[in-house]
Design a protein around this nucleic acid. Structure first.
Length: 893
DNA sequence: GAATTCGCGTTGCATG
DNA sequence: CATGCAACGCGAA
């Protein structure tokens, strides 16, 4: 075999080469200030002068610091080496550059203790931690007045934590001390990550233009509103109109040798060699770094277009990996935080490389690259709000294979030999595919995911590495914090939010609060059913009823108040609430601008796609905006707010119901924000819609038209066939993911029969077919006509098997059997098992035999699944699936 | 570091 | 051994 060449790097240089070249801040003096937000008044300023950029490369020597640049702001980090914020921007050459803060911004927190008081408790510039005190005024959103606070400006972020506890222990109030420094930097400079900036001595946003048609759309959102509000709308419009740059990025995937088959190597120990690393970038380049191993050969060809570089030395391979990656602004991995990158790092350390020379920082739960930004797609795709609202719940298992299969329609390469023993060409194919899938998860559908992430960065004001690693509540917190700072509002502490105003009945009554109404559904078949729903009901309520933490039960409210039905919270109407304004703005932008523009055929397709992404990002935000307020961990947690939203929602639904009855409309069902109307006649419907608009300012819309609707009599459980022949199934067991596979399949065929139903007579015909079908399923079950795979039940472990202490559910029993076989299972894994006749009652599919299967148990499942349809058709199970009737049918055959 | 409540079906387990 | 409720998973909204 020919490939022992490869680039052999000069090892000694990398290990013993010169140390860090990061700039040492030189002291100097400038008069620069933050361009907006509050000026930091410490007169001394640093002016780090980076070395000129060099094309030669030594490990840890890449110098991409600049004094000045125009580029896309992707992130901000705090760098302890020079005790400053460092901004990461992508310039016009798609190169990541770093800019060390030159505005002399410093960490701080706020307190009500005056400087003299602070000095008296040992907090002063004498102790080395404090830089300066600024006495300043902030608007207190709850007290509705300006309050005097002391801004304690300190040397470094750690000092904040230290001093805040001292101040608190002396009984003084403290604000904004738990905001991470790099976030404070963004807020104070009013930066919008994901937007283009020019930085030199300070920050200057580079504005994109707005086309003319935009003016009227903005007018439609802000008609009759204040000047400030119009300015805000314009700011947001600029933010959403700028289509993001397709930043150069590379996906990487690492393969490790392991003598123990089936065991995932431990990245902490990193005992075995890295045998290959695949890289795939979004400019079409695919490369693999391969370790030479004795007796390993190519049995087939190398895929076309793949660069292969072979190393006979593992260190060289790993260092070359870093050299490759450093040219990219963004590195993508799948599990890179917890596996690939820590493995490489620890492996290099094990091999004797000085840790300081490895250009990554290993944190507790993430790994960052010194010269690139790192997105771990495992973390990104774990974000629940994205899973549900952006990807429609299309993937369940958080593995590259499952997610790629669901979103790209392509899975991993299947290997017949495990990675360590696979022939080199197979290894390449496998490894390269993983890197490609990882990359494609960010590029498919015209960069949907990348654009989504950038849009969320802009709304949340969080950097790339934060947005992709945190749940939706963190995003919403970011937006709220930033907006408080923009208005020069004090960000209230949890105590203040809990204080006066949270003394609601709910808190005394119990921890949780009441949710929505679900109407009692009928049982039976209905023809011509209209489904109406309120467009974004909860966000609209937050907007229209002025709901916000500071408008509800606020003792400092001097003006009028409105009372929320049922829960009797009082809402202040003399001023506009901050969350009401922000949620309302997002809602209006989505409904009135971006949803429309995404469908507007006069707009070029690529722009429409971008607008669709914008509205999708807003959807995620809006849908979560109510829930977070009901979560105690959320910094702006407001139970009265969450409780008011649902209370108003109930009242709206009930009043709509009453009005509908007055109008002689026949309501068959309804859930939270929807009403199902049977065969509406005349103008009543339009009248109802107008009534809702006039009385509540809510939009009641026709969502679907069902030619036929089947109701089982159970809540959240129905089936409808739309006028376009599309079958909509909600809540039925036959569709649930934890239903045995064969039942889901059989259910589908029965449902297809229903697709053609147009009249009552049709239902009778269908019923006969369903009857035969069930008999057939029964016969197949009894004669072992289904495979183990078809019989498998798939349930997710919501925690590690050992953590189920109260009960041991069946899938956990199966999981424990797998563990006995040496298979590692854990939280998030989906366990496939079958029901057996032994004492345990279950067995993992891969350990079971068809002869052990308990057919009777499955018949029970078949019953529940089909009963939900049969009941609607007015038939009892006994008449169809009972022993007698089955016997009869089967004998006839 | 973490969005909510409502509802259904299955199974486990304590209680008598 | 019957029974009732809790735990769990999943879905609708």
């Amino acid at each position: 075999m020919s490939g022992r060449s490869g680039r052999i790097v000069k090892l000694d240089k990398f290990i013993y080469g010169s140390s860090s070249s990061d700039p040492n801040p030189k002291s100097g003096s400038t008069s620069s200030q933050a361009t907006s937000g509050e000026s930091v008044s410490n007169p001394s300023s640093s002016d780090p002068t980076p070395r000129s950029n060099t094309t030669s490369w030594l490990l840890g020597e890449l110098n991409n610091f600049v004094d000045e640049v125009e580029g896309l702001l992707l992130d901000v980090r705090y760098d302890g080496r020079f005790n400053k914020a460092v901004a990461y921007l992508v310039d016009s050459n798609n190169r990541l550059v770093r800019w060390v803060d030159r505005t002399d911004h410093k960490p701080y927190f706020l307190t009500d203790a005056e400087p003299e008081v602070l000095a008296s408790i040992g907090i002063s510039s004498d102790n080395g931690l404090v830089v300066q005190f600024d006495v300043t005024a902030k608007f207190h959103p709850i007290r509705r007045e300006r309050v005097k606070v002391t801004k304690v400006i300190v040397r470094d972020p750690l000092a904040v934590r230290k001093l805040r506890s001292t101040v608190q222990s002396k009984g003084y109030k403290v604000w904004e001390a738990d905001i991470k420094y790099h976030h404070n930097y963004i807020y104070d400079n009013q930066l919008i990550p994901g937007m283009v900036y020019r930085v030199n001595r300070g920050w200057h946003r580079v504005e994109g233009g707005l086309d003319e048609s935009y003016a009227e759309l903005i007018e439609s959102i802000s008609r009759g509103e204040s000047r400030e509000y119009k300015d805000l709308v314009l700011e947001w419009a600029l933010m959403f109109e700028q289509k993001p740059l397709d930043v150069k990025r590379v996906a990487v995937d690492v393969e490790i040798y392991s003598p123990e088959e089936g065991r995932v190597p431990d990245p902490e120990k990193a005992s075995y060699p890295v045998i290959s690393i695949a890289l795939a970038d979004n400019r079409g380049r695919v490369k693999i770094l391969l370790l030479y191993r004795d007796n390993m050969a190519f049995e087939g060809g190398i895929p076309e277009g793949v660069e292969v570089e072979i190393f006979d030395d593992e260190i060289s391979l790993l260092l070359e990996f870093f050299r490759e990656v450093e040219g990219y602004p963004v590195v993508l991995t799948f599990n890179g935080d917890s596996f690939d990158i820590p493995y490489i790092y620890n492996r290099l350390v094990n091999l004797g490389v000085d840790p300081h020379l490895i250009p990554v920082e290993v944190h507790e739960d993430k790994v960052t690259f010194r010269h690139s930004l790192h997105v771990d797609l495992y973390k990104l795709f774990s974000i629940k709000a994205l899973q549900v609202y952006a990807f429609g719940g299309r993937y369940r298992e958080l593995t590259l294979d499952a997610i790629a299969e669901a979103l790209l329609g392509m899975g991993k390469v299947e290997l017949d030999t495990p990675v360590p023993r696979a022939s080199l060409d197979k290894l390449i194919a496998y490894n390269v595919r993983d890197a490609m899938l990882t990359l494609n998860l960010t590029t498919f559908a015209n960069n949907l995911v990348w654009n989504l992430v950038i849009t969320i960065m802009r709304i949340s004001k969080l950097g790339l590495e934060d947005v992709t690693r945190h749940q939706v509540s963190t995003w919403i917190r970011g937006l709220l914090n930033w907006e408080h700072r923009r208005r020069r509002w004090l960000i209230p502490s949890r105590e203040e939010l809990r204080g006066e105003m949270a003394r609601s009945k709910a808190i005394i009554r119990e921890k949780r609060y009441k949710g929505a109404i679900v109407l009692e559904p009928p049982r039976g078949v209905f023809f011509d059913v209209l489904v109406l729903d309120f467009a974004s009901l909860y966000p609209s309520i937050i907007k229209n009823w002025n709901l916000s933490y500071e408008t509800i039960n606020n003792p400092w409210c001097k003006g009028g108040r409105k009372v929320v039905p049922e829960v009797e919270h009082e809402i202040c109407v003399e001023f506009k609430g901050i969350t009401s304004e922000l949620v309302g703005l997002l809602r209006d932008f989505r409904v009135k601008v971006y949803k429309r523009r995404a469908k507007d055929e006069s707009i070029p397709q690529d722009l429409r796609t971008w607008y669709d992404t914008v509205q999708a990002a807003m959807k995620v935000y809006i849908n979560a905006s109510y829930g977070v307020f009901g979560n105690e961990a959320f910094p702006f947690y407001s139970l009265p707010l969450a409780e008011s939203v649902t209370a108003i929602g109930r009242s709206v639904l009930v009043n709509t119901l009453k009005m509908a009855e007055k109008l002689s409309l026949h309501i068959v069902y309804g859930d939270t924000d929807s009403l199902f109307i049977w065969d509406p006649r005349g103008e009543s419907l339009e009248e109802l819609i107008r009534y809702i608009e006039d009385n509540y300012g809510l939009e009641l819309e026709v969502d679907k038209k069902f030619k036929v609707a089947l109701f089982s009599g159970l809540k959240k459980n129905y089936l409808g066939v739309t006028d376009r022949g599309e079958v909509v199934i909600k809540g039925m067991v036959g569709k649930k993911s934890n239903t045995p596979e064969f039942i889901k399949e059989e259910f589908k065929t029965v449902v297809n029969l229903l697709g053609g139903v147009r009249s009552f007579d049709d239902t009778v015909v269908v019923l006969d077919k369903v009857r035969e079908h069930i008999a057939e399923v029964y016969r197949k079950l009894k004669t072992k006509g289904y495979t183990l795979e078809e019989l498998s039940i798939k349930v997710m472990l919501s925690k590690d098997p050992g953590r189920y202490v109260k009960t041991t559910p069946q899938h956990v029993k199966a999981a424990k059997l797998l563990e006995k076989e040496g298979v590692r299972v854990g939280k998030g894994d989906i366990i496939a098992f079958v029901k057996t006749r032994d004492s345990v009652g279950v067995k993992p599919v891969r350990l079971a035999k068809l002869s052990e299967v308990d057919a009777n148990k499955y018949l029970e499942y078949v019953r529940t699944a089909f009963e939900q349809i049969l009941l609607a058709l007015g038939v009892n199970w006994e008449e169809v699936g009972g022993q007698k009737s089955l016997a009869k049918l089967l004998n006839l055959k």
